[in-house]
Structures are given as C-alpha cells and as structure tokens.
Amino acid sequence: MESCIINSPLGYTKIIGDENGIVQVTVLNSEAQITASIPAVLEDCVRQLQDYFEGSRKQFHLKLNPKGTAFQKKVWKHLNTIPSGKTLSYLQLSTQLGDPKAIRAVANANSKNPLWILVPCHRVIGSDGSLTGYAGGLYRKQWLLNHESQYKQQSLF
C-alpha cells in the first residue's frame, strides 16, 4: 500500500492506494510533511484532485477500492450519481436507495466514506437545506459546495 500527503485549499490531504485502486483520501486537521515524490500508483489521483481544486474537473475517473460493508459500498456508489453543483438530502438518498426508513443507516454509511471528495458525501445535506454531519468539518463542506456551485459568490471589494 502506497501513501502520500499533498496540500489542498482545505488542508493537508492523505491519499492511500495501490494497483487495485484508491483506498482512502482524507483531509488532515493538523500540519503534515508534504510528500516529495508521489508514488506512481497515486499520481493520477493527485493530478485529478489538483484539477478539481483548480476548477477544471467536475468528475473523477479513478479506480477506487474503499474498504467497507456491502451496504456502505452501495451508499458510496450512489453518492457518485449526485452531479457536481447539486445536493441531495439524507431522506432523498435513503429513498433513492429503496428504503426511506433507513435514513440513519444511510447517514452513518455516508459519514464513514473513506474517499473524501472522490466520493462526494459533501453533497448530502439535511432535508431543510442545512449543512449537517461532515467529518471534515462543516466549513469544508460549505467550501466544497461553493466551489462546485455554478453561481460563484463574487467579492464586492
């Protein structure tokens, strides 16, 4: 298993994977040493994340290999159907997965997503439009949603 740490607008980001795919992408809440030489199996992931943060990428085309239960993987797979710039509520997500009563299980699976940004769990919000439950911090969730929005907030000064 190979790993690297890169810097992003939202903090240091750790990427783990091998020839079978990307296993984990996490944002760190502390400083870390940026990897000087990116392992070959992670180069495409690093490049695509840089493209995303620069605003030139809306979708990722990577081989993913997250570790989780069959139910978690089903939820994570469905998260990839939410288009960039759009959101879905936890209730809508659980309904689309076939069981609106499974909202807590769906929310729990969403919170366990090991592939930060690549599997867009940040696009899931509360039924009332509120930003709820984001492991990376709500300010990061807001930043990501703003970054993906087709309506960019302009500064007046």
Score class of each variant (00 low, 15 high):
101 K>P: 02
102 A>C: 11
102 A>V: 06
103 I>L: 10
103 I>P: 06
103 I>A: 09
104 R>H: 08
104 R>W: 06
104 R>L: 05
104 R>E: 13
105 A>I: 02
105 A>L: 06
105 A>M: 06
106 V>T: 11
106 V>E: 11
107 A>G: 13
107 A>H: 10
108 N>T: 11
109 A>V: 05
110 N>V: 15
110 N>M: 07
110 N>T: 14
111 S>H: 11
112 K>S: 06
112 K>Y: 10
112 K>T: 04
113 N>R: 05
114 P>D: 02
115 L>A: 08
116 W>C: 13
116 W>K: 08
117 I>T: 13
117 I>K: 12
117 I>D: 14
117 I>P: 14
119 V>E: 05
119 V>N: 10
120 P>Q: 10
120 P>T: 07
120 P>H: 10
120 P>V: 07
121 C>A: 15
121 C>V: 13
122 H>T: 06
123 R>V: 01
123 R>I: 01
124 V>C: 05
124 V>W: 03
124 V>S: 05
124 V>H: 03
124 V>I: 12
125 I>S: 07
125 I>N: 05
127 S>L: 01
128 D>N: 02
128 D>W: 00
128 D>F: 00
129 G>T: 03
130 S>P: 01
130 S>R: 07
130 S>H: 04
130 S>W: 00
130 S>G: 04
131 L>S: 03
131 L>G: 02
131 L>I: 01
131 L>V: 00
131 L>A: 03
